[in-house]
Design a protein around this nucleic acid. Structure first.
Lengths: 101, 101
DNA sequence: GATTTGGTTCGAAAAGTTTAGAACCTAACC
DNA sequence: GGTTAGGTTCTAAACTTTTCGAACCAAATC
């Protein structure tokens, strides 16, 4: 897969508890920290854990995407990941800052 | 039970992901919101959900306690619950504020 | 147009969490 | 000292989440 669009929730539908849950896993939190430095492809991200099967990584991403935290869009042969930072900051002021600090 | 001491983790041992996990459940988050208004007994707290069996409530509390979020100490016949607010604020500045807001 | 690369989805097994009844414990009150 | 009120712990069943191989898909490259 590469070019179809995946579902992203509207930020107004994102619940605080879903965000907290998504970030409560160390592997997912690590991914978010990486992505917070700037957009990345799947391949670049998680280089910290190279042995991770791609289906597992894809699933971690899905949880983050469904919680409204990351955007995942087609780019060339692959996919670009980015943090939905501004939207999140507006919906949950200060939350991401205090978590990523 | 009423008077023996339960284990509370040292705040330096509390991991961010544990805190996030504990708060990612709506019932637990509701309890924390209540307790954030001031100390409470088990009986007073969760009055919003009176049908909740006491073993279930006790378990929710245990998760919050083990995550370093609430203190649970004997008081008279019952137990007093309180938020470990200052310690949490020091360890994770701004986190509780942004979640409880 | 065949192959390679980068990635998703499906399905099933393993692991972890939640829920609640029953047994139990202790302080307070009579 | 018996009873009651307030809570914890144990245990087992139900449910959710995690993990990962296999199958699949599409864009890019040859």
């Amino acid at each position: 897969m590469a070019s179809y669009d995946l579902e992203h929730p509207a930020m107004t539908d994102v619940e605080l508890t879903d965000v907290l849950f998504a970030l409560s896993d160390p592997a997912r939190l690590a991914i978010v920290r990486e992505v917070s430095e700037g957009p990345l492809s799947m391949a670049e991200c998680g280089a910290t854990n190279p042995a991770l099967p791609k289906s597992t990584k894809s699933h971690l991403m899905k949880v983050l995407r469904e919680a409204g935290i990351v955007r995942n869009e087609p780019e060339g042969r692959g996919r670009k990941l980015s943090l939905r930072r501004d939207e999140l900051d507006e919906r949950f002021p200060g939350l991401l800052d205090s978590i990523l600090r």
